[in-house]
Design a protein around this nucleic acid. Sequence first.
DNA 1: GGAGGATATATCCACAGTGGCTATAGTTGA
DNA 2: TCAACTATAGCCACTGTGGATATATCCTCC
Lengths: 108, 108
Amino acid sequence: MLPPATFHILLALADDDRHGYAIIQDIAARTGGELKLSAGTLYRSIQRMLEQGLITETRERPRPEDDDERRRYYRITPDGTAAAKAEARRLGQLVKMARAAGFAPGKA
Amino acid sequence: MLPPATFHILLALADDDRHGYAIIQDIAARTGGELKLSAGTLYRSIQRMLEQGLITETRERPRPEDDDERRRYYRITPDGTAAAKAEARRLGQLVKMARAAGFAPGKA
DNA sequence: GGAGGATATATCCACAGTGGCTATAGTTGA
DNA sequence: TCAACTATAGCCACTGTGGATATATCCTCC
């Protein structure tokens, strides 16, 4: 059971390396503004995820004219991908149960 | 965003009234033993859900020969059903995002 | 060139939800 | 008889979270 914030961060890093602030914006965009991850949650989650090896900090930077020295970029690891897949599977089963209970429309 | 335990309890009460201990067993059975809700979490969740009006305690009892005086039976309310539907919708979108990210198989 | 707001990271505090332990007690079965 | 299971409930400690605060840079507009 991944913490919700961790799963969202992994989703945000699935397609591209991103820095912290960009992760917050990506999550807000994906959820149509429903979920605005607080900065406190984000940076503590990142620290935990680094320790657990779910993500790593990359040395690669965008071209200098597109960069901002303050940024720190993160990349998902194989362990991070595995954890995200396991969580996705768990959530899928939960949705299946919700359908069976009549809480969600049939998958038609 | 419903607490995970709350959503599982609503799922357990979707089809039938149940008492606390039976809810724990139902959740364990549904998840194939993956999730064993602790007694502490269950009874505190029930109290919160009663206060929020997501469930009510029923006066109806099974036939005396099938009953156990110690039990307290609970039933989902319309508010509880609405909350469960909203949560199911949120989880469905999360699974959709996971598919788009390649963390879950296409819904085929 | 100065102000204000957005960008960017990080730490702190308080609160909610959870697991596991303990308590209490009735029930079942070896 | 004794143990395990059923059943509810309170307690303590831990984790994850939001929101506030701090610090600093970047960008735009006047």
